[in-house]
């Protein structure tokens, strides 16, 4: 069953189209990844789903409720962890969660237990009476995830949950996120521009310039790139290259003194190669395709931050436009 349904969704900010005719569905109980470079339209889509923005055209539903017309029902069934922290730094961790519990009208008898469970689950129980301003970036993000779970939402939105965290905190946070669907009976909708993090998702949609350019499971998407790449160093590349080409009927290229070939199943081919030209092989390595390669193949550009400066400009344009005119 689809818990999130988006139909032909568009959002314009003045003359800029941040989201263009986007449609997708998210199965209940899964982790759905919305991937793309900065400024691709991820946050705008989340804000529409969270009822903070209304779409220019198209529709979005969360567990059957229209995000535009029934904001109250939608708000009850979602939890949100925004890209920028929305904690009150002058309150303790416990107080922040208590604030949330009251705001969502959690029953008095359940409040304490739910807060304690969430703090335990995200490994923050020992710090519950500390002011949030003493927390590290990773702890704040974990606390926000804990807060998002207090009212038992059916969908939890995570907008760039690991942005700005060090690798260790990122790994730590992921440990918790992947357990959420099963342990808390919640569907995860997350955005990220770190492609490698999206590997944990059940389904992925890749968005660029406001349009979904491809979608599928991580494995399906990576298959579209054309398979694994085997890199071989030999004692005599000039001879070994044509030899492999003839034996296996594939194109072999030479780059920086290394032969490389693209095949569907690299792990199965390596033993064959060793068996036939084994005496010449110095080293072999196998590179599996990443989601980055998927993005690269479709758009012809890298997703990494250094290559998205034009998108950043767009992001800023959208933000300043929203500040000025459209708070709806």
């Amino acid at each position: 069953m689809s818990i999130i349904k988006v139909e032909n969704l568009s959002k314009d900010f003045g003359s800029i189209s941040a989201v263009k005719n986007v449609s997708f569905e998210v199965e209940e109980g899964t982790i759905f990844g919305f991937l793309g470079p900065n400024g691709a339209g991820k946050t705008t889509t989340i804000n529409i789903l969270c009822t903070l923005l209304s779409p220019t055209s198209g529709k979005a539903f969360i567990s059957g409720h229209n995000c535009k017309d029934e904001p109250s029902s939608v708000r009850k069934s979602i939890g949100v962890v925004f890209q920028d922290t929305t904690l009150d730094k002058d309150l303790t961790a416990y107080e922040n969660l208590l604030f949330h519990a009251y705001l969502y009208n959690v029953k008095r008898s359940d409040r304490k237990a739910r807060i304690h469970d969430a703090l335990h689950f995200l490994d923050l129980y020992d710090r519950k009476n500390d002011l949030v301003k003493t927390f590290s970036g990773g702890m704040k993000r974990r606390l926000e995830v804990a807060r998002g779970l207090i009212h038992k939402p059916r969908v939890l939105f995570l907008d760039e949950p690991t942005l700005g965290l060090d690798p260790q905190s990122r790994a730590h946070l992921w440990e918790f996120i992947v357990k959420l669907p099963e342990m808390h009976n919640v569907t995860i909708f997350m955005t990220t521009h770190y492609m490698e993090e999206a590997e944990v998702c059940n389904k992925i949609a890749i968005i660029d310039n406001g349009e979904i350019i491809t979608r599928g499971t991580p494995t399906e998407l990576k298959k579209t790139v054309g398979g694994d790449v085997i890199y071989i160093k030999t004692s005599d590349n000039m001879k070994a290259g044509p030899e492999i080409e003839k034996l296996f009927n594939i194109t072999v290229n030479d780059k920086n003194g290394e032969l490389y070939l693209t095949v569907p199943k690299g792990d199965a081919l390596i033993p064959e190669i060793i068996r036939t030209i084994g005496e010449k092989v110095l080293s072999v390595r196998l590179q599996r395709p990443t989601l980055n390669d998927v993005f690269l193949k479709i758009t012809g550009k890298q997703i990494r931050e250094e290559n998205v400066s034009s998108n950043d400009t767009m992001k800023n344009a959208v933000r300043s436009y929203r500040k000025k005119f459209d708070r709806n």
């Binding site: 109250s72 708000r75 949100v80 929305t86 904690l87 009150d88 949330h100 705001l103 009208n105 807060r147």
Partner: peptide, 11 residues
């Protein structure tokens, strides 16, 4: 500093 967003997405 963001807390308003937390209040605005609440029911």
């Amino acid at each position: 500093f963001g807390l308003m967003k937390e209040i605005l997405v609440a029911p």
